[in-house]
């Protein structure tokens, strides 16, 4: 199996090259955020306030890590279910967000918005929090510290393994792969 190495931030051109089913390893800066942080960001946008991060060409990782043990920078850090962020994602894509990392399918609305804004959705292995933690090299809390595990963090990752699940054309592995094994 070939693995494509990608670096963040990812330009539209880079994103367009990825196809559903590609196995990738992501290196560079990514941002964490899940339910509560998304809710707050969208409320900020409604009030006309700026987002805490410029998401242009960046990736958001849907994760709420477990606490770091002494001497470590973060605890277990696997993906959470992306569908809960569906209500908020199109607005972030409009602000330039280049892609998302999580688990589970996305709504039609999100997929359409991804196609309009040339965004990619990556899936990684749910539950594999201990393994994925070892790809995280630094962690900094950027915003909403009071949300604890749900705060927005800036993390540096190295060779973070993921699969392109929905590409910029809207090809969706959840649709295509299942058919091959349906009996």
């Amino acid at each position: 199996m070939t693995v494509i190495n990608i670096k963040t931030p990812m330009s539209k051109e880079d994103r367009k090259k990825l196809k559903a089913g590609d196995h990738v390893q992501i290196s560079g800066t990514i941002y964490t955020g899940r339910d509560a942080a998304h809710k707050r960001m969208i409320e900020a946008l409604k009030k006309g306030s700026p987002l805490p991060v410029d998401f242009t060409d960046q990736l958001i990782y849907y994760v709420g890590p477990s606490p770091a043990k002494p001497g470590e920078i973060i605890g277990s850090a696997g993906p959470t279910t992306s569908g809960r962020m569906d209500a908020y994602t199109p607005e972030l894509l409009e602000k330039g967000l280049g892609g998302m990392i999580g688990k589970g399918n996305r709504s039609e609305k999100v997929i359409n918005s991804m196609m309009n804004h040339v965004a990619v959705y990556f899936g990684c292995v749910g539950g594999a929090g201990a393994l994925l933690q070892s790809c995280i090299k630094s962690v900094e809390i950027l915003a909403y510290e009071d949300l604890g595990t749900e705060a927005i963090r800036k993390i540096e990752v190295e060779n973070f393994p993921a699969i392109v699940v929905i590409d910029t054309q809207g090809n969706n592995l959840y649709e295509t792969e299942r058919k091959k094994y349906l009996k």
């Binding site: 605890g75 277990s76 696997g78 292995v125 749910g126 539950g127 594999a128 929090g129 201990a130 393994p161």
Partner: peptide, 21 residues
């Protein structure tokens, strides 16, 4: 395979298998 590897890492380092405990 990744899932099985992950159990080994969690065990070796005594950290949670999954962050959602």
């Amino acid at each position: 395979k990744t899932m099985l590897d992950n159990f080994e890492v969690a065990k070796r380092r005594t950290i949670p298998i999954c962050q959602d405990t």
